[in-house]
Amino acid sequence: MHWLLMGLAYLPYSVLYLLADFFYVLLVYVVPYRKKVVVENLRNSFPEKSAAEIERIAKGFYRHFADVIVEILKLAAMSDAELKRRVIFRNPEVLERFFAEGRMAIGLASHAGNWEWVLTSGAIWLSAEVDGVYKPLSNPFFESFMCELRTRTGAGVIPMRDTLRDMVERRGQPRVVSLLSDQAAGPEDRPYWTSFMNQEAGFYTSADRLAAKFQAPVVYVSIRRLRRGYYEIVLTELYDGIAPLPVKDCPITEQFVRLLEQDIRNAPEQYLWTHRRWKHKRNNG
């Protein structure tokens, strides 16, 4: 399986995108992949849109999703120079200022654009180390393969359960720790509840708690597809790591949600709608 995937990765983009076109037809027309979840998420998120508009966005999403699948695979064969050409950091100075001061920063990203290219390209564009927090996969082969892809440009990976220990042990090292902060937090996680795309959603409070504990600046990572196979990343400072932070109100997470909403509304087809993001409900009892 490893050599098969590596062989596919070395195919030219023209062939890989033909494969993506095939995946698109398969996912939409042959074996619809989570179509009910996608349409329900879109309807609830965009109640003002017609059924035809929802269908158009859904098809645009599946086309983008098929592209992301082959682009993630292509990471195995991409040179650093090619990846840097295809993913442009518009304002890396937002993070470089903190690195120059010897500080650790937290980056808040989401499942928008090509989220797997964020970590790997960040390791090329930025002068300090880039580490991504992730949830290990249950399949040993794909766990190993994905870790190999994510670290091939020099980025590091941190299993979610080890995040706090890693940050304590490496406190004071200039680097950025990246979190995919749009994942669904259940009632047992004591989430921060807020409105997200016209629906109440629970968010993990890790960003606010870690920023307060380590006095770490926080940036929002926006990734947008410019055209097929090309993306841009724009960084927005959410917290400077100095001002007092009212953790219980989760101001950092609230800012993250509002910026993510803006990105989703600007390019709805580029968000990961197959995820049951709103499956948890607040327990008011």
Rank of each mutant, 00 (worst) to 15 (best):
L95T: 07
H111C: 01
V257I: 14
P12H: 06
S178D: 04
V118L: 15
R190Y: 05
R161S: 06
T194Y: 06
F22A: 13
S178C: 15
C147K: 15
F142Y: 15
F142D: 04
R258I: 01
L245D: 03
D249A: 07
L75A: 05
F196A: 00
I72N: 14
R85A: 06
T205A: 09
V247G: 04
A58N: 08
P136T: 02
L83S: 06
S121Y: 10
P140R: 11
L180N: 01
R150Y: 10
I252K: 11
W193G: 01
K281F: 02
T120D: 02
S121W: 12
T151C: 11
A77Y: 11
K248R: 14
F65Y: 14
A212M: 07
L119S: 08
V168H: 11
L4A: 05
A267V: 09
V30K: 10
Y10V: 07
L83Q: 12
V39C: 01
L164Y: 15
I264E: 01
Y134N: 03
D162Q: 14
W3I: 00
R209D: 00
A81S: 13
D208K: 12
F23D: 00
V130H: 08
L149A: 02
M160S: 07
V31E: 00
H64L: 08
G132Q: 10
A52V: 13
V234F: 06
F142V: 10
W3Y: 12
I233L: 01
S138W: 05
Y230F: 14
L272G: 02
V133C: 03
V257W: 08
E48A: 09
L238Q: 00
F214V: 05
T274R: 07
R225Q: 15
C147M: 13
E82T: 14
P251T: 05
I264S: 02
S110L: 09
D166Y: 15
V257Y: 07
L226A: 05
D21P: 04
Y271P: 04
L5W: 14
G229V: 07
R170P: 02
W193Q: 01
Y17E: 04
A52M: 11
R86A: 03
S127L: 06
H111I: 10
